[in-house]
Design a protein around this nucleic acid. Structure first.
Lengths: 132, 132
DNA sequence: CTGTATCCGCTAGGATACTG
DNA sequence: CAGTATCCTAGCGGATACAG
């Protein structure tokens, strides 16, 4: 097990997401982007087919789902398994790396869902005093 | 301590980030958006002033940093403390809620930075076989 | 220093139609 | 079912100028 999470300051890695040109920033955006996080979250409950994903991630268009899946597959987070049957059947599932990322993301999502009352209260206060 | 992370299926909350109209989706986007994640990550190491933040989050423009900070403040994740001195001095720091969110985000970021070799290897494989 | 205001290009992303 | 192709637009986000 690594100490990375426990001691950020002691890290000595070639990648730094705070740096402008680091490739890790692009991957972070795939993961945390508008649809990436939701797709990973959905797949963490098990493999899903294209249209199952579309229904689970309410509001995503075919185009964006397709694009998102390609990016995540390219980054090695999602595995695409196509069967050449008719009608075609394609299953998407997480890789081990994807599972770790999705687990962390889902932890964040669930914490957020559980904190929304606080968030909405904060918003009302902010708006009530005129957004200063 | 809550069971939320341990047992997603047993949750029974009024908020569902997978639903199209749920306000939690908007907040998730503030948190995981292009700049939100980096700002929260930067502030988790301590309070920072506006231009300190700009330097730490390399590449962010004044406009987007300002916008991001407002959104995070409104959601109750960031606290803004202005001193009416001359020259003015404004410190930004995390609220307790913001600290929890930022901690989880930072865990994800550090895990990602530690996995970038795998990610880049996956990308090379994907590209080598022509992106199928 | 800490921002806001304005202009504007670019592209993320939605709608629709079509293919295998 | 599982996508790709095309068109189109709202708004993200950068650059610059200005203000308190």
């Amino acid at each position: 097990m690594n100490r990375i999470d426990e001691c950020p300051a002691a890290r000595n890695l070639p990648y730094d997401v705070f740096a402008k040109e680091c490739p890790s920033r692009g991957t972070l955006e795939h993961i945390t982007g508008r649809w990436g996080a939701l797709v990973l979250g959905a797949l963490s409950e098990g493999s899903l087919r294209f249209n199952e994903l579309r229904r689970r991630v309410a509001g995503v268009s075919e185009k964006m789902l397709s694009q998102t899946l390609h990016a995540l597959e390219r980054d090695g987070l999602v595995l695409r398994e196509a069967q050449t049957t008719n009608p075609p059947r394609v299953d998407y599932e997480l890789t081990p790396l994807g599972r770790e990322v999705a687990g962390r993301l889902l932890g964040l999502i669930h914490f957020l869902e559980g904190s929304m009352d606080d968030v909405l209260a904060a918003r009302r206060r902010y708006d009530a005093r005129g957004g200063r």
